[in-house]
Simulated scan of single mutants.
Amino acid sequence: MVKYIGSKRALLPWIMGAIETIHHQEPLRSVADLFSGTARVGHALKKRGFYVISNDLMSYAHVLAQALVEADAGVYSRERLEPILQRLNALPPRAGWFTRAYCEHSRYFQPHNGARIEAIREGLEAEAQGDPLLRAVLLTSLMLAADRVDSTTGIQMAYLKRWARRSYNDLRLEYPPLLPGTGQALQKDALEVARGLEADLFYLDPPYNQHSYLGNYHVWETLTLWDRPQTYGVAHKRVDVQQRKSAFNSRREAGEAMQRLLGAIRARHLVVSFNDEGFFRAGEIEAMLRDWGYVHRLSRPHTRYVGARIGIYNPQGQKVGKISHTENHEFLFVATHSRKVYEAIAQSAGMAAD
Rank of each mutant, 00 (worst) to 15 (best):
M1S: 15
M1W: 07
S7Y: 01
S7E: 03
K8H: 02
L11C: 03
M16C: 12
A18M: 09
Q25N: 12
D33W: 00
L34C: 02
G37V: 01
G37M: 01
G37T: 02
T38P: 03
H43G: 06
L45Y: 00
K47P: 06
K47C: 11
L64I: 05
V69E: 03
R78F: 10
I84E: 02
I84N: 00
N89G: 08
C103Y: 00
Q110V: 04
H112F: 04
H112L: 07
A115V: 07
I117V: 13
L134Y: 13
A136D: 10
V137A: 11
D150M: 01
M157T: 15
A158P: 03
N169V: 00
Y175M: 11
L179M: 09
G181F: 00
R195P: 08
L197K: 04
P206V: 10
L214W: 07
E221P: 00
R228N: 14
P229V: 11
T231M: 12
H236A: 14
R238Y: 04
D240R: 09
S250R: 09
A254V: 09
F274P: 00
E286W: 03
E286A: 13
R290D: 12
D291E: 14
W292E: 06
V295C: 10
H296N: 12
S299E: 15
V306C: 00
I312E: 10
H325Y: 01
H337G: 13
S338I: 05
K340W: 04
V341H: 02
V341P: 02
E343I: 09
S348V: 14
